[in-house]
Structure formats: structure tokens, C-alpha cells
Amino acid sequence: MIRLLFIGLFFVADYLIAGFCTEQEVAAALLSPGGASAESGVLALAYLGVRLLFIVTFVHGLGKLFAHLIERFFSGAGRKANNPRESA
């Protein structure tokens, strides 16, 4: 649940910062003379950082979820095979 919360949080943050970067013309500022030293550089780094966090939490979270589902499936199947009452 907490993983899902983090994925959602970073997803929303990614979207909001992207909107802000677009509105503030961050990429244009980075390309312009003196732009890279201004707050545009910080914004771009923040955006890339949040995007990276979203990707990592998403991939890790979904990987864990998938692993959990597979383990449950196989352990359930195993119990059923070894359970004398069910096999009878």
C-alpha cells in the first residue's frame, strides 16, 4: 500500500513539475545565454530527479507485486498438492 502511495505521489509530482517546467520555459532557458546558471537548472534537475524516482518506484513496486502474486500462486498450489484432505 505504501509503495502504491509513493508511486502515485511521484507520478503526480512528475506531472506537476513538468507543467511548471513547460510554463517557465525551462528547456529554452537552459539553452539560452546564462540560463543554465539560473533557477532553470535547479528546476530541470528536480524534474529529472522526480522522474527517476517515479520510474524506480514504479518498476520496483510492480516487480514486487508481481513476485508476490506468483509466490502466492505457487505456494497455494503447493499446499493443495500436499494437503491429504484436499488430495483425497
Binding site: I55, F58, H60, G63, K64, L65, F66, A67
Partner: peptide, 16 residues
């Protein structure tokens, strides 16, 4: 571990 790896591959596909 294999299940986790399979899950991450699915997640990367979903991201793409």
C-alpha cells in the same frame, strides 16, 4: 527472485 525480475520487466514494458 525470478518472479521479481519478471515483474520488473513487465513494469518497464508498461512504462514504455
Amino acid at each position: 527472485m525470478i518472479a521479481y525480475l519478471a515483474g520488473t520487466l513487465v513494469a518497464i514494458r508498461a512504462l514504455a
